[in-house]
Amino acid sequence: MEQTITVTVNGTAHTAEVEQRMLLVHFLRETLNLTGTHIGCDTSTCGCCTVHLDGETVLSCSLLAVQADGRAVRTVESLEQNGELHPIQKAFHENHGLQCGFCTPGMMMSALGVIEQHPGASDDEIREALEGNLCRCTGYQNIVASVRSAADEMARS
């Protein structure tokens, strides 16, 4: 079955006819060409596909695109504005928070989920917020340092 949906992605409303079985992550990547959101598993385990749905972090691989009809999605592509990196992107760059970068979009969206609501988040709270994001490269230490630094920066500004 096909269905016409309208999803606001990073502030822009997109209307498209999609198959009802289409996953939100495929809608983002293949219909809208927003390939920053990655797919790393079939078991809702890796967190690479994390986006915000109406302000809450969700796994875009575990939602149907039709479930986002009429709602607002925010992806990693929203972070950079006019060529200027977002503080979380700068922090990952400066703290060597990535190696291959595959997990990074999901990491940053999960991290923003906690620090935007709670800029004073402790390291433990940051680690808890990242529990659902797997990284095969970094050993997590520099990721937590990046998020810590971004949280501090965002609390200052």
């Binding site: 994390t50 575990s62 808890e128 917020a129 529990e131 659902g132 994001n133």
Partner: peptide
């Protein structure tokens, strides 16, 4: 349960 994203849904 699981992680924050799992608990959100």
């Amino acid at each position: 349960v699981g992680s924050m994203t799992i608990r959100n849904r």
